[in-house]
Amino acid sequence: MHSLMDTLLVVVVLTNLWLLGSGRIGASINAAAAQGVVLGVLAVLIEEGRLGVPLVAFAVLSGVMKGVVFPWLLRRAQRVAGVNREIEPLVGYTVSVLAGVAALGIAMRLSARLPLPAPAPSALMVPVALFTLFSGLFLIVSRKKAITQVTGYLVMENGIYTLGMAIAREEPFLVQLGVLLDLFVGVFVMGIAIFHISREFDHIDTDQLSALKDTQS
């Protein structure tokens, strides 16, 4: 069981690298979706001994939301806004992947000296959670398009979810449900925002949005 958990965590790391290295919006949406599903499976594996209905229900719900609903919303936003499939990063893909590996090294070191309230179910869990957070942040900072920033946001949330699994095992069910609902609303609103931005300005390049000026002066 332990080795299966480690394998899944490595798969999470690989999806992060995939996200950092992929040049297509479709591919990065797929990677984020795969990550969400893997984390859902992981949530069930961790609570091996005391599986309850709410826990399984929540894992299934979060897997379905992250694996099916969010990708669908994002793809719809991409299609409706007519976004070009190319990602246009500020930092090149190869450099992004190598930066990701460096971030994993930092996460490993950091988690080794991080005092935890309770030992994590797997020694890899906290480093992977931190690494997922880092790569989500990196994706938000280094990609130009609004839609890829949403995927970065999703990845960051996945990192927080993993960290939650690692250190706060008895997280109240309601809190988790609330987080998932917030996420849903976030993606939904961002999808609408992307659509409106693209209708207004013919593109969703956030660089150019920062150059906007107030028209009345």
Binding site: V10, L17, G21, T94, V97, L98, G100, V101
Partner: peptide
């Protein structure tokens, strides 16, 4: 570079 990343991992 992907291969190198896997190896580093």
């Amino acid at each position: 570079a992907g291969a190198a990343a896997l190896a580093l991992l």
